[in-house]
Design a protein around this nucleic acid. Structure first.
Length: 713
RNA sequence: GGGCGCUUGGCUCAGUGGUAGAGCGUUCGCUUCACACGCGAAAGGUCACAGGUUCGAUCCCUGUAGCGCCCACCA
């Protein structure tokens, strides 16, 4: 160990210190629970939400990594056998897309390479970016057990995915069916509802007149007046935002309660342009208020229409293909046209036929692929589904009973809302990068979330029931994640865990705030509004960056990120460094190697006040951390260090310097370092190293702050 | 259509049923022997608006407005 004065005389150099301290921790082996001292029994486990291997970490990852590290470090100091499992996600469509983009720059498509070569390329990408991500987590100070790093396409992990699929399959919960799915014509795959993004667009609402078929056969026997009336043109008017889909219509639907159309239900309509005879049907799902109350039904290209089609046994005309082009079934020279061109042609023809009643401006929401942004083209296709009713039931009960709880609690509403309206999960994807569906003759891969759903136990060795990690560390305790994947991921982990493990995957779900720009906009690379956390670490240090992130995390659902907070963190680190210099320069040589015990004897009012404030802070910080209120806890520590310890007591001690104040300063500093360690691990460890303290054992490592006893209330 | 969150000094945000706080910024003064990444002092807010409960509300209740987010099969 360096001489105390020598070390602390130098100004604090975050960069040099952080790299060196991280190596010290890694060498100590304490990130791995198996190496922790004192034969710890009770475990505390966190599985990291695996970042996608699409690129580097963003601010949300940095915040989340910090939160998890705070939890793990505190629990480690509290004597738990702590395990934080790191890893990455193969992120099917997202990763396939970034690799395709990269190929495109070289003028290649994935089809040029072929499946096998392309997947090789994706693995190369994974290797590169997976390592970058793990390296970035280390920069942040994450104390993960790197020896247990997992990837969702590891060989053993693939075995878990296969086992899970076959389990469901044998139970009869996986079935194949024709369904209208959200189809991305660029990514060439189906997407779940959760994978859509919506955008308001200015569109039009076309009112189209569909001629009602005349009863020519019976008209002979009618009176002249009756005949005249029937021969007069009569129409039913439908409103639509997508006139081109009329080519695939197989009915017109109205609400059965709609008085306006009561007489027309059961009648036949001649579909313009196509000439097909289609029925007018009644269906309760039709809104009376929308448009004219009469709606055209295109079962092949609209989800609701598909359902109505099934209820009324309507035929399905597939008029748009997987690339967004019109099919032969669209007829009359439409084949091969884009949807947009087909729309123009349909409207022109209808106008010529005098069948457009009117056109209104209409703002509506279009769904887009969340990966590439292209407008979704609903398509009928064969897909694999997982039955959700029974799975959802258990998952819902787990949260209702409090066995699994959301923090803050209000987020359970988002969860329940989804569970209460659950639909079967479309688990097949028509892409190349992912887990292949383990059935003969099927080329589809599984939805990425199918594998992520197994994360808490597949990372611990499942399906190998004999895995010692699985026995020892499952179920885990805390899951920290972002609110936008509560249903996409969290809900699916919960039901998967009850299904395969027969118990909950974790107890607490911590939903952290979303990091927005200072003016409340979404951070995004494409908008140029993103901030790179690693850049901040280079500039201010990891401790300062962690401080700044947590300092702003005060319980709202968003954080308007302000870099000033990181600067404040850097200044705070500097303040702490100087406080330590003062304390140690004063006490060096006099209290060396003496135990840092609670100061006894005659205390002045100032001494008592100082120790009382310290105790109050310890109590409040413990309470806040138990409630996952890290921002608040950090504010308390900050205020204590700066305004009590430095502003008051250090100033007091300058006027009243003696052995007693020295002891109190040293005692207070030691407690403070321990309390602050989970938040700012590097600088606290560095200063701790310089403290005169009783050796715990002959082993150097056992004096690290990382395993020091946590200041309990 | 349902649900959620937010509205406090220039900016980003804490906070309490009883005369408003922090960080950053601003102004003034300090090279005081831990720290100029600092110290001392100062300016700056009718705590969105309107009612209600209360001896008393920024904090509790109701309503209104604005901002943001989530969910849902208005074609």
């Amino acid at each position: 160990m360096e001489n105390i004065n020598e070390k602390l005389l130098k100004p604090y150099d975050a960069k040099e210190t952080e790299d060196r301290i991280y190596k010290t921790w890694e060498n100590s082996g304490f990130f791995n629970p198996d190496n922790l001292p004192d034969e710890r029994k009770e475990t505390y486990t966190i599985v990291i939400p695996p970042p996608n291997v699409t690129g580097s970490l963003h601010m949300g990852h940095a915040l989340n990594a910090t939160i998890q590290d705070i939890l793990i470090r505190q629990k480690r100091m509290q004597g738990y056998k702590t395990l934080w499992i790191p890893g990455t996600d193969h992120a099917g469509i997202a990763t396939q897309n970034v690799v395709e983009k990269k190929l495109k720059k070289e003028g290649l498509s994935r089809h040029d390479l072929g499946k096998e070569k392309f997947i090789e390329k994706v693995w190369e990408w994974k290797k590169e970016y997976g390592d970058i991500i793990l390296g970035q987590l280390k920069k942040i100070g994450a104390s993960c057990d790197w020896s247990r790093t997992k990837f969702t396409m590891d060989e053993e992990y693939a075995e878990a995915v296969k086992t899970a699929f076959l389990h469901y399959y044998e139970k009869g919960w996986i079935y194949q069916g024709d369904r209208v799915v959200n189809w991305c014509t660029r990514c060439q795959t189906s997407l779940s509802d959760l994978e859509l993004e919506y955008e308001d667009e200015k569109g039009k609402l076309w009112y189209i007149k569909y001629p009602i078929k005349k009863l020519t056969a019976v008209s002979d026997r009618l009176s002249a007046a009756e005949s005249r009336e029937l021969k007069a043109e009569s129409f039913i008017i439908v409103a639509t935002t997508r006139p081109e889909t009329m080519l695939g219509d197989s009915a017109v639907a109205v609400n059965p309660k709609d008085e306006r159309y009561k007489e027309l239900v059961g009648k036949t309509v001649i579909l313009p342009i196509v000439g097909r005879e289609i029925p007018i049907v009644a269906d309760r799902m039709i809104e009376l208020e929308f448009g004219t109350g009469a709606v055209k039904i295109t079962p092949a290209h609209d989800m609701l229409d598909f359902e109505i089609g099934e209820r009324n046994n309507l035929p399905v005309y597939k008029i748009i293909n997987q690339y967004g082009k019109m099919t032969a079934e669209a007829g009359n020279g439409y084949e091969g046209l884009s949807v947009k061109d087909a729309r123009e042609k349909v409207v022109t023809e209808l106008e010529e036929l005098g069948l457009i009643e009117k056109i209104e401006d209409y703002d509506h929401r279009v769904s887009k692929c969340y990966r590439c942004g292209r407008v979704i083209e609903p398509q009928i296709s064969k897909q694999w589904f997982l039955k959700m009713d029974e799975l959802a039931k258990k998952a819902k009960e787990a949260v209702q009973s409090g066995e699994v709880s959301f923090r803050p609690k209000r987020w359970e509403k988002v969860y329940f809302n989804w569970m209460d309206n659950i639909k079967d999960w479309c688990i097949s994807r028509q892409i190349w990068w992912g887990h292949k569906i383990p059935l003969e003759g099927v080329d589809d891969v599984l939805d990425t979330w199918f594998s992520s759903a197994l994360w808490p136990f597949a990372t611990l060795g499942w399906p190998n029931e004999e895995s010692s990690d699985l026995k020892e560390f499952f179920p885990t305790q805390t899951l920290s994640t972002a609110r936008d994947i509560i249903n996409l991921w969290v809900a699916r982990m919960i039901f998967s865990s009850y299904e395969f493990m027969g118990q909950k995957p974790f107890s607490d779900i911590v939903i952290h705030p979303t990091i927005l720009t200072k003016d409340g906009r979404r951070m995004s690379k494409s908008l140029g509004t993103g901030i790179d956390p690693i850049g901040l670490i280079e500039k201010y240090g990891a401790d300062a960056t962690r401080f700044g992130l947590i300092y702003q995390m005060m319980g709202g659902q968003d954080v308007h990120f302000n870099e000033d907070a990181i600067l404040a963190g850097k200044k705070f680190a500097n303040k702490l460094w100087n406080i330590s210099r003062f304390v140690l320069q004063n006490t060096d040589g006099k209290i060396k190697d003496e135990k840092l015990s609670f100061p006894n004897g005659d205390l002045t009012e100032e001494d008592k006040e100082m120790l009382k404030k310290l105790e109050d802070t310890v109590i409040s910080v413990n309470k806040d951390m138990g409630d996952y209120r890290f921002g608040h806890a950090l504010h308390l520590i900050y205020d204590f260090v700066w305004h009590e310890l430095a502003d008051k007591y250090i100033e007091y001690s300058k006027q009243n310097k003696n052995e007693r104040t020295d002891k109190i300063l040293l005692y207070t500093l030691a407690k403070t370092l321990a309390l602050l360690h989970p938040f700012m691990p590097f600088i606290t460890e560095e200063i701790w190293d310089a403290l005169p303290k009783e050796k715990n054992s002959s082993q150097e490592n056992n004096n690290l702050l990382i395993i020091e006893k946590w200041p309990e209330a």
